[in-house]
Amino acid sequence: MVSWNTKQKIIGFLYILPLFIVVLLLFLYPLIYSVYISFTNMAAIHFLHFKYIGLFNYEMMIKDKYLATLLINTVIWTLGSLIPMIALGLSLAIILNQKDLYGKSIFYAILILPWAFPGFISLLVWQGMWVDPYGFMNRYLLPFLHLPHVNSLISVSSAWTELIVTNLWLSFPYYMTVFYSGLQSIPQELYEIADVDGAGPLQKFATITFPSLRKIIAFVFITSFVFTWNNFYPIYILTGGGPGIATETFTVYAYQQAFSQYNYAFAAALSIVSTIITVGLGIIVLKFTGVLENIT
């Protein structure tokens, strides 16, 4: 006779089984397979018949003279993109959240327009816009603003400018939308009481808006940090990691190792290390901000 508790456990297990199967197939299998091949010599000439070689790929990675540069570049890319994206997204959300703003829907529709285009196509358009001296940016906009030309082929700072500005354009609607919805959840009464107390806009932002959004900002920061860390297309399309490897990140380097140099095992090892770094940083940020405390 099966006890009631056992039966309940079986039923409970059946409930989560479909999700477990999906997670296993879609998430865990690729991860486990990547870990597995990172310990093999899977490469061009050992594509079908590869063997276990222990930590060789990880040793090669440590010996790789580009490792430090790749790490620094990845941090520059991630934080360099995230900070302006969050700042712009939050600023626009605050503007949109003004009660007395007319045509709010129209502004919002215009501002989320970059989302309407497929990212890959947008990047190709931006690639053309940055061509020096023929593209829109170097031909019209930058001279109009009295700013110097930007050419990623001849300058590292230009390359970073191209990447971060383009990524900002591609991503700010997401941040704006998330913060806008967060702002709308703040009780209006708080602002009204603050008005009665004679608080100014900055004071209201510092004492009401920002504390109320703290967890949303932390959540957005963590998820976007991981996404941007692994974001591949902007760099691959706009600069290809150049000049040299000046804008090359872990992910772009891993891609080139796999698909240009057919060194799949080494690329897998790079990906695993990259994953460990992002998971580690994620845990630290989660603990620091306590963003998951309210999620039960």
């Binding site: 082929l153 001849i154 590292v156 150049g242 040299g244 000046a246």
Partner: peptide
Amino acid sequence: HQYASEFFASK
């Protein structure tokens, strides 16, 4: 590519 692009960027 890596070193040619660095060279043409005058690095």
